[in-house]
Write a protein that binds this DNA or RNA. Sequence first.
DNA 1: TTTTATTTTTAGCCTTACCTAAATCTTGAA
DNA 2: TTCAAGATTTAGGTAAGGCTAAAAATAAAA
Lengths: 220, 220
Amino acid sequence: MELTTAEENYLKAIYHLSDGGKKSVSTNDIAAEMNTKAASVSDMLRKLGEKEVIEYRKYYGLQITESGKRHALQTIRKHRLWEVFLVEKLNFAWDEVHEVAEQLEHIHSPLLIQRLDSYLNYPKFDPHGDPIPDEFGDVRSRPRVQLNEMEVDQTGQIVAVKDSSAAFLRYLDKVGAYIGARIKILDKVEFDGSLEILVDQKKTLFMSKEVACNILVLQS
Amino acid sequence: MELTTAEENYLKAIYHLSDGGKKSVSTNDIAAEMNTKAASVSDMLRKLGEKEVIEYRKYYGLQITESGKRHALQTIRKHRLWEVFLVEKLNFAWDEVHEVAEQLEHIHSPLLIQRLDSYLNYPKFDPHGDPIPDEFGDVRSRPRVQLNEMEVDQTGQIVAVKDSSAAFLRYLDKVGAYIGARIKILDKVEFDGSLEILVDQKKTLFMSKEVACNILVLQS
DNA sequence: TTTTATTTTTAGCCTTACCTAAATCTTGAA
DNA sequence: TTCAAGATTTAGGTAAGGCTAAAAATAAAA
């Protein structure tokens, strides 16, 4: 069964908002995420229900089906593989990839994705540190902690960001807090939760709690 | 000014059918090429006229404008660059690339194409031997001759095909007459125009005139 | 030159994916 | 427990890109 580009986008949004089908999602949430109106969402939910990628009872809410999860994970897989391609092969900066990957993820060709995956050496994580589902939709995720939750002297590696707005990514790039950077907490100010961090054993960085909240770290 | 995917496809068809604006094209020709009906074409011609990529006088015919040529060449450039990528980097066979490139050519991102071009080392020809326009739409084409027009003892290199149907491409692949193959005419049968050819200095190949008509050779 | 055949265009309809405005359902507060 | 606020859905409309059937223009043939 084939989904249109719009349907794929809605399904992906639902998958993300529901945290993979765990949390419940409202019509308004979806409208906000997709930059559309609630009325348009209602309409689309009916269609997605008919295609059986969600189970939809009006006024009561929705539930992603197994089929829906497979479709969503497939789209996410394509998005993240293209992001890896853009950064590793075409030297895009990580704040430039999202918009293009958003288009590339809708190219239909199983062979293309299989070959791309192989060409990129079966990457497990995208440039933002998010895990790439395999062709069966399986995800190996690493346990991650927000940078602001770490204590003085703890160490780790930056593996993902929560806010992937271009402004935030550019800021991180500027201060050298790239994905993969090894960090150590040097000091933590109790008053405002701000941090002093050692990056890659050389650069010292001062960071507000607001920024730290949006950085995910794999502790070591 | 932005064109939709459908508009880009029509414009590309018009560009090809008119041989770059030289020949005149009929509504029915376009309908046949696009697998749509004449009524749909009329409608689209009106729209393309409004966007000034063609000059359109109803019942009289159309003429691609300079702006239209730029748009068409840009789409052709993208299509052919993606074909090079698919064949050279992802190991697609040349009879598998067309459909996927047909989708990829509509991705909008000037940066992507610029980087892709550089990543592929600014190729001048696609896997079928067709020239790739540069970013200004300029094309360096090589003088090419149909294989059936060559005489005994002449040599050259296969650089393009006229019929790019999957069936034809598969046939060529099977017999080893790939793009880039060096060939020499060993014998030519006057009666039916069929040829005996030496491929890459090792393989001898017998070929009907019908097939030879569809193969373009750069003589040497 | 008239008539017929062919090509092209218009008219009117369909689907997708959006919209606004109005109706309807659910829920939380009195 | 009733009722207003808030969320959700329906009703009806738009634009793009298709379609068929009918009308109009051009081209060809008698």
